[in-house]
């Protein structure tokens, strides 16, 4: 609720930080997460085993437990706009240890999918999309590597889309089906403006 201060900085500084349970929550959020992540995230009882297992936790403000909490409460915006969302290395230690048999990593993956729908995504992910669209590889071949391959008695191009580029249009068709390239191009170009 805006307070009507004439100074936007003050409005921001003193914004209402209460959790009101209804106004800022999206009850569909948890359902979407459970559908995408294929894990019963609503059963989280916040024991913190996930954060305790997390290699990113001790070196950052990233708390996977907190994302689980946001999932349960439906705090969609708070979750998707938090840059810590992208600090999960997807090591799945949390998933193996969760006593409620939830896969918190898959909750993070689901949240990232939902963030992407809102155009929230780090640039490196988009660049990988562009590379795969173009070559079929996220990490494509290069000249130094081709030379090394030849020295090893391998062909310069591996037996992949690199050697058989005729498979690339099929890959592009799949990516286009989901508008991946278009979206990646758009977001990247917007970022450059």
């Amino acid at each position: 609720m805006a307070k009507g201060y004439n100074d936007p900085a003050m409005e921001e500084k003193f914004q209402d930080r209460y959790f009101h349970a209804t106004t800022e929550t999206n009850p569909e959020f948890i359902k979407e997460i459970e559908r995408l992540g294929r894990t019963h995230a609503h059963m989280c009882f916040q024991c913190g085993t996930c954060t305790g297992s997390c290699p990113s936790a001790p070196r950052s403000s990233y708390r996977i437990r907190k994302f689980m909490r946001r999932a349960v409460l439906g705090l969609e915006k708070e979750a998707l706009t938090d840059p810590d969302l992208w600090l999960c290395t997807t090591c799945y230690s949390c998933a193996d240890r969760c006593p409620r048999d939830i896969a918190p990593t898959d909750v993070i993956m689901a949240m990232r999918n939902l963030a992407f729908k809102e155009d929230i995504v780090p640039r490196n992910f988009l660049k990988t999309i562009q590379l795969i669209y173009k070559t079929g590889h996220g990490v494509p071949n290069n000249d130094a590597n081709r030379a090394a391959r030849l020295k090893l008695g391998l062909e310069a191009e591996p037996e992949t889309t690199h050697k058989y580029p005729e498979f690339i249009p099929g890959i592009q068709k799949i990516l286009d089906h989901y508008d991946m390239k278009e979206t990646a191009d758009r977001i990247l170009s917007e970022g450059e403006q």
Binding site: N113, I132, G136, G138, K163, E166
Partner: peptide
């Protein structure tokens, strides 16, 4: 396995759209 591509990378691709 002729014509294979990137697997695709589970972090990079799974993160943006699991369907892809």
């Amino acid at each position: 396995l002729k014509g294979a591509s990137c697997c695709p990378a589970p972090g990079a691709f799974g993160a943006v759209d699991l369907r892809v």
